[in-house]
Design a protein around this nucleic acid. Structure first.
Lengths: 332, 332
DNA sequence: CTGAAAGCGCTTACAG
DNA sequence: CTGAAAGCGCTTACAG
């Protein structure tokens, strides 16, 4: 790199290495140093383009200012969709804010193959887990625990453990929001479409729907929930006039299938926002700020690393975004 | 981490730290060590769960086994599309193969804001540039050069510099491929649709189209290329029977606009493959293996870092993927 | 074939 | 207010 080290800076400033280190590292006021010394060391560091050697610092302090991100299998990242971009945006934003690096733990594949992730985690001060396969496997969890570094979960997280730290969208509240929007437009009989993926997230969205529907005094039946694609005849018989899609694709498909079968329904989906906060889908949607959520998780993690008190369980509220055309009322 | 160090391993094995280090690091046969010693050190390291301290090793060797990835602004990652996922997949694949970590240089935003990226690059052995804003700015290039670490470009790269190292899809060959496919179906008058984004990539695709068309003896005119959306009347007058879209969105839109105006054309787009190598779009497409390309770029970079001889300019061939329905011939 | 020693660059008690 | 010294864990000439 730049090549100059503390020794050179100290020499240039005419002070000892210790003093140079103190000037450059200690928060002003924390330690007594003369103003003249401070000025000379700063000037020397500047003129030499001094950049602290990260490895040396880490060896000494035991901190790398680097967090590991345990994502999913590459094929997940390679899946269609907006997902990865939001995650990246959140990671970078928080990294810049906090002065931390972000390492993709490329060892993940080794890890799930029964390999040893210790080497990969070795230089991370903390671990951000974005992966639900992981914590559902006790052996994997044990491996992570042995690393003895703070762990924060985003997106999905182990349930029922009060010590777990996470930040995620409030999917249940999102489900209630979707019901509210449709009820406001006059709908009373509202179905819920999901699939068997993402049990945690889709499950919470469904629970929100259930809660809001029950609160509105609607008698729910199991067949108001469909998997993947609804049966138009069944929807017609149940008299559903609207559906909520646990994601955009499920909602879109269901909407289309029903329309084609002459059973039109109104649709609200769970969707995404773009980087300017505008909804990414044309359908009316309940959406979360995923990038913001990831960024908050990183803040939690750095808080843990640095021993600060933090909110250990963050639920980020979702918001309803109407489409360009207002929600229509029941047509049947 | 695990807490045990070389010292502990050496003690357990009854050898010196030097010997333990040699056993654990030198390639077998490189250095003379007795078989018994090797066995004892290996056993000790295993039983203690020894993991080398990355920072200490780096401080000593000056190598971090970590490469920096200078991507784009988060808003780019957050854009719709398949892009980021393929990049991630390529990075992870190569990282695992080569035993290198991958650091997202979160300092990019600081960098373009005129900040100093040295601190971020400090611990990277090499730099992968995925960003075209960067090398078009002399000041940024200068900053990178001062880091004195090897640099490899993927996706886009500076033109005309014979020393530059890159791996990217062969877009020009892809353009020729698209023409071939359409000519094979009987088309002779083939237009090209692009926009003003991605000058480098779209320009090369266009150049491939030009080359193949000229080679086929077709007299090209400037108005066979349209920006964003074609003028149906113009297309009809020119007698174009097919178009090539520089990406899927441009191609799709143009195809639709022309069909709506009663000027149907056959369409081939530039597209993507999913992680199993299947095309991601319904239209007939010329597609590249972007993840593979990124992985090859990482291999180049690690080759440079480790002083091996490498292919300095890699052009990965693209392939034509017909859709489920074969290409139709000219209809007008 | 093996070990003792130096040193990578930094931070931090400790001693003035 | 400042400096000399120890030591983080490792690798590698150097000397046996």
């Amino acid at each position: 790199m730049a090549g100059s080290n503390l020794h050179a800076v100290a020499k240039e400033a005419g002070v000892s290495v210790s003093t140079a280190s103190r000037v450059l590292n200690k928060a002003p006021g924390t330690v007594a140093i003369s103003a003249a010394t401070i000025a000379r060391v700063r000037a020397a560091a500047n003129s030499l383009g001094y950049v602290p050697h990260a490895a040396a610092r880490m060896l000494r302090t035991g901190r790398s200012r680097c967090i590991g991100v345990l994502g999913a299998h590459p094929s997940f990242f390679a899946a269609r969709g907006h997902f990865t971009g939001e995650i990246m945006a959140g990671l970078m934003r928080a990294g810049v804010e906090l002065g931390y690096h972000t390492t993709l733990l490329t060892g993940w594949e080794h890890f799930v193959a029964g390999g040893d992730i210790h080497a990969d985690l070795g230089s991370a001060d903390g671990l951000l887990v974005l992966n639900r396969d992981l914590y559902q496997n006790p052996a994997h969890m044990d491996t992570i625990r042995r690393c003895r570094i703070p762990v924060v979960y985003a997106l999905e997280h182990p349930d029922g453990d009060p010590d777990v730290v996470y930040a995620r969208p409030d999917d249940e509240q999102g489900g209630r929001l979707a019901v509210e929007a449709l009820r406001h437009a006059g709908h009373e009989r509202i179905g819920f479409g999901r699939n068997r993926e993402w049990q945690g997230i889709f499950g919470r969205r469904q629970r929100g729907w259930e809660t809001a529907m029950r609160a509105a005094g609607v008698e729910l039946r199991d067949d108001w929930v469909f998997n993947e694609t609804p049966d138009p005849q069944c929807v017609a018989e149940l008299g559903l006039t609207a559906i909520i899609g646990a994601n955009q694709s499920i909602g879109r498909t269901a909407h289309q299938v029903l329309a084609d079968a002459g059973v039109p329904v109104e649709l609200v989906v769970f969707g995404h926002l773009d980087e300017r906060g505008a909804p990414l889908q044309d359908d009316p949607a309940v959406a979360h700020d995923l990038a913001g959520c990831i960024a908050r998780a990183v803040h939690q993690l750095v808080g843990l690393i640095e021993g600060k008190t933090i909110d250990r369980q963050i639920l980020a509220p979702m918001a309803f975004h109407p489409s360009t055309t207002a929600l229509a009322g029941p047509t049947r």
